[in-house]
Design a protein around this nucleic acid. Structure first.
Length: 729
DNA sequence: TCCATTGACGTTTTT
DNA sequence: CGTCAATGGA
């Protein structure tokens, strides 16, 4: 068979990875080196050349987006349906396994997925109910503790805590939480993975079945795997399976949530006959950007070692702007974007990235002022919105009345006169009898344990849910959704809120009905024995939707460094490069390689840029209400200075006598600059003073003056009309 | 039950 | 400085 279509667009290293004959392969793929391409071509190679059945291939990713992209690109390349292929996220695949084998996994047939918001609520309540001090045992920390244990594969009994009263208490919370979830048929994200692992661990014949079936495993972003994911892969591979993992130890930025970079090393140790390949040719960035990134990351110890190179040009120097304060920084960045747009480039080619989410605000403000469209990544997603979760909770109850988290959410939403007091009795009853709330409520009614008014309210609520289930059983999903929203009177409940909020909520509910209407039960969910409703609810939890639905048009992208991973843009700004902010001070003080992870984060950020990288920091930043001075980020010192062009040499260091800084910069807004022969930051030449950088403007018309910071002569104010400045080449 | 005021807190986030 | 949640008064 002619395989040239699979190989002729690949470089040597990529080709070697795609055609590898080793049993196991570790592909260390640098940023922009074509790792997804390798993964997809390997997939095609296995099927078309090695005639591996598509049924025996499992490809795992971390995000739904990556999984979707992989399926789509594989489809394009293979020109046949990718339906039989198992492509999905770790969580998605674990979920599917658990649906298919819910009995063996010890689960309720109608188990529901608990998202992290649900999980938090549940824990907060359990801790309160247990009479523990919420300040001493915060739900956030409990959540973190439990998830971390699950990520390590640990159940309460296996945790050593004899001599640690504090650990013992966390374990106690873990136990309570576990019992609660089991009663209510709830499974959180970490539990999906742990259960899937235990499913095989406790059912050898089932494991054997999957080992026989899935002989070829492909794993993306391997450096992000946690312990349980790694154990899961190892278990599935067994002695016979063949595994190819792709990852980049230099891009490991999720250590703080359990990712083990060490898995990359362990892979070579734990699997026999591992061929390690490096993809170092970069197809994305200019030589300058790569050199800078290489130099930076070289400061990390414990690397597997990689050096990106490009056959392309060196390109422009990395620019560095030292802003007076965060306002000045935002102003500068937006001004640069205006220039970019002025050159006829597109806004969508530009990304502003930063360390903390709070930093987006100022940029938004300035972009708004400049009428430049933008889109902020992150934030609340569609299925995480309160009104959506409320409506879904009713559906969840139709599906499984024992879903305590759903009951708690909507039993008094909208208000039905079931207040905290009534609820407390129900919870007490539930705890005392180890029953789900629904059954405890039935018990309360039977035994008259509450005042008549409360009993009537509870009864009415339960009747409503039961009616919904009976009446809507055979309705379409969209009609069920609509029916639930109507019967629950959620809309009139939200109508009491302030108009703007209310309108968006009602609009979102309408959108939810549309989504339910448009939902088609995926074939693989059907195969796993899921109903349409079950599938819809699971999808809502597992893929909460795009971060921001609209605005796919031409707009500037704002995001944290973390969410920038995997993306690329011609022009990238990394803002807030100050010690304490980036690297963040909490990672500097904490031990355990946190600083190295910050450096990798910087590396990730830099390697997002294709043509131009622009770094900036503010000497003074207003944070938490007070002003703080900080040193420029230490990472800036790690980038060779010959690669950097300082847009504005720090004049207050060179020329302390120049005077008050603030008014000087304040005038240099984009509006005033329009029609000026020079841009702020532009390099100019003067016949007498030599080379310098335009630093500020003042006045207009024939009185217009420009401040230039000359490399030799220092800062000077010049009247434009007489100065005879030339643009530097 | 609802709204307003007060107080603590302030990396990074997908599933 | 802003946000969010908890508290307390009407």
């Amino acid at each position: 068979m002619d395989v040239s279509h699979l190989l002729n667009q690949l470089n040597d290293a990529q080709r070697e990875a795609v055609t590898t004959q080793s049993k196991h392969t570790l592909v260390l793929a640098g940023a922009g080196s074509g790792k997804t391409r390798v993964l997809i071509h390997r997939l095609a190679w296995l099927i078309q050349v090695e005639h591996v059945s598509p049924l025996s291939i499992l490809a795992v990713t971390f995000t739904n987006k990556a999984a979707g992209e992989m399926r789509e690109r594989a489809q394009d390349l293979l020109k046949v349906s990718t339906r039989p292929l198992w492509i999905g996220t770790f969580h998605g695949i674990a979920h599917r396994l658990l649906r298919m084998h819910w009995q063996e996994a010890g689960l309720n047939e109608n188990f529901q997925i608990l998202d992290s918001d649900d999980q938090h609520r549940v824990l907060r309540r359990l801790i309160k109910e247990e009479g523990m001090d919420e300040n001493q045992w915060p739900a956030r920390q409990a959540q973190w503790y439990i998830n971390a244990r699950k990520d390590e594969g640990q159940r309460p009994p296996s945790i050593e805590h004899m001599d640690h009263p504090i650990t013992a208490q966390w374990v106690r919370i873990y136990e309570l939480y576990e019992a609660y979830c089991n009663r209510a048929g709830l499974v959180d994200f970490a539990e999906l993975l742990l259960r899937a692992h235990e499913l095989w661990l406790h059912n050898p014949s089932l494991l054997e079945h999957y080992r026989n079936r899935l002989g070829h495993l492909l794993v993306d972003e391997f450096q992000d795997t946690n312990s349980i994911q790694y154990a899961w892969i190892r278990m599935l591979a067994g002695d016979s399976g063949s595994v190819l993992v792709v990852g980049d130890d230099d891009q490991s930025i999720y250590g703080w949530r359990g990712a083990q970079v060490a898995n990359v090393q362990h892979f070579r140790r734990d699997f026999a006959d591992v061929q390690t390949l490096k993809l170092e040719q970069n197809y994305r960035s200019t030589g300058t950007i790569l050199e800078g990134a290489n130099a930076l990351i070289a400061n990390n110890e414990d690397r597997m070692g990689k050096k990106l190179w490009t056959a392309g040009e060196m390109g422009q120097p990395i620019t560095l702007y030292s802003a007076f304060n965060e306002q000045d920084e935002a102003r500068f960045v937006v001004e640069q974007i205006e220039q970019w747009l002025g050159k006829g480039r597109r806004a969508e080619e530009v990304a502003i990235v930063y360390r903390t989410t709070a930093q987006s605000r100022l940029f938004e403000e300035y972009l708004l002022k400049a009428s430049i469209a933008y889109r902020v990544y992150g934030g609340l997603r569609f299925f995480e919105r309160a009104e959506i979760k409320d409506a879904l909770a009713y559906l969840r109850l139709i599906q499984n009345p024992n879903d305590d988290a759903a009951i708690e959410r909507v039993i008094n939403t909208p208000n039905r006169g079931i207040g905290q007091k009534t609820l407390a009795v129900l919870r007490l009853q539930a705890r005392a009898s180890s029953l789900p709330l629904w059954q405890a409520a039935q018990e309360c009614i039977r035994q008259n344990l509450l005042p008549p008014r409360a009993l009537a309210a509870i009864h009415a609520f339960m009747q409503m849910i039961t009616d919904m289930r009976e009446r809507m059983g055979d309705w379409t999903l969209g009609n069920q959704m609509q029916g639930v929203i109507e019967d629950s009177q959620l809309v009139s409940h939200y109508e009491k809120e302030p108009r703007e909020k209310m309108e968006s909520r009602v609009e979102n509910l309408r959108e939810l009905v549309n989504a339910a209407d448009a939902f088609i039960l995926p074939a693989e969910d059907e195969e796993a024995g899921m109903s349409e409703l079950q599938s819809f609810l699971s999808h809502a939890a597992l893929e909460a939707g795009e971060t921001q639905g609209e605005a796919w048009d031409d707009c500037v992208q704002l995001m944290t460094l973390h969410s920038a991973k995997g993306l690329e843009f011609p022009l990238v700004f990394i803002a807030g490069m100050e010690d304490g902010l980036f690297p963040h001070k909490r990672s500097v003080t904490e031990a355990g390689g946190r600083l190295e992870e910050e450096r990798r984060l910087c590396y990730v950020g830099m390697t997002r840029a294709r043509e131009q990288l622009c770094l900036s920091y503010a000497e003074i930043r207003r944070m938490y209400g007070s002003e703080s001075h900080s040193r420029p980020s230490r990472f800036l010192d790690e980038i060779p200075s010959e690669l950097i062009r300082e847009v504005r040499p720090r004049m207050q260091v060179q020329r302390p006598w120049v005077g008050p800084k603030a008014p000087v910069y304040k005038q240099a807004t984009s509006r005033i600059n329009q029609g000026w022969p020079f841009q702020l930051g532009e390099s100019v030449n003067h016949r007498k003073f030599g080379a310098g950088t335009v630093v500020s403007f003042e006045g207009s018309g024939e009185h217009a003056r420009v401040q230039v910071n000359f490399h030799q002569a220092g800062a000077k104010w010049l009247v434009l009309a007489y100065a005879n400045l030339e643009r530097a080449g």
